[in-house]
Structure formats: structure tokens, C-alpha cells
């Protein structure tokens, strides 16, 4: 049976669906009796999505204008 550490060490493979059937069974067995690890897995899984939303960046309008001018000058020279 996995410990908390074993379970957390295997999370990347677990979320990618790449655990062996044996390790998957060990992990599920551990999660079945360890609510803190269930919370840990849920929050680990949610982290990427939260980061994606927090780190969205749009190109500022002035940078977009400068990009357009830059490309026009370069493309026109060809």
C-alpha cells in the first residue's frame, strides 16, 4: 500500500493515465483511506488551470501597432 509520499510522487503519471494497473490500485487504495491526500490530489490537479487563468496576457494595443509597422516595413522590403 502506498504512503502519502508514494501517492504524491506518482501524481504526474496518475494524471497522465500512465500508472501501471498495480500502482493505480495502490494509489486508489491509499486515497480511499486518506482524505488529506484526496484534497491534495484535487488541488494539485486544479493548480494548472488556475495558473492558466491567472497568467493570461494580451498584447497591448501599442505593441500590436508596433508589430504591424515592423512587419509591414520588413515585408514591403522583400
Amino acid at each position: 500500500m502506498f504512503t502519502c509520499k508514494d501517492s504524491i510522487d506518482h501524481l504526474v503519471h496518475f494524471l497522465d493515465g500512465e500508472l501501471s494497473p498495480e500502482d493505480e490500485a495502490h494509489l486508489q487504495e491509499h486515497l480511499g483511506g486518506c482524505p488529506p491526500c484526496v484534497d491534495f490530489v484535487n488541488t494539485y490537479r486544479a493548480t494548472s488551470g488556475m495558473a492558466r487563468r491567472a497568467l493570461v496576457k494580451k498584447m497591448p494595443a501599442e505593441v500590436g501597432s508596433a508589430l504591424q509597422s515592423f512587419l509591414r516595413s520588413k515585408l514591403a522590403a522583400k
Binding site: C4, K5, C37, F40, N42, T43, R45
Partner: peptide, 14 residues
């Protein structure tokens, strides 16, 4: 023994 030394504060994934 390989147990978490500190438990997550809450399940904020929701």
C-alpha cells in the same frame, strides 16, 4: 512514515 506532515488548508479546487 511517509505521511503528509501538513494537511492542505481546504480543498480549494472547487
Amino acid at each position: 512514515r511517509g505521511s503528509l506532515a501538513e494537511y492542505p488548508e481546504t480543498d480549494w479546487s472547487r
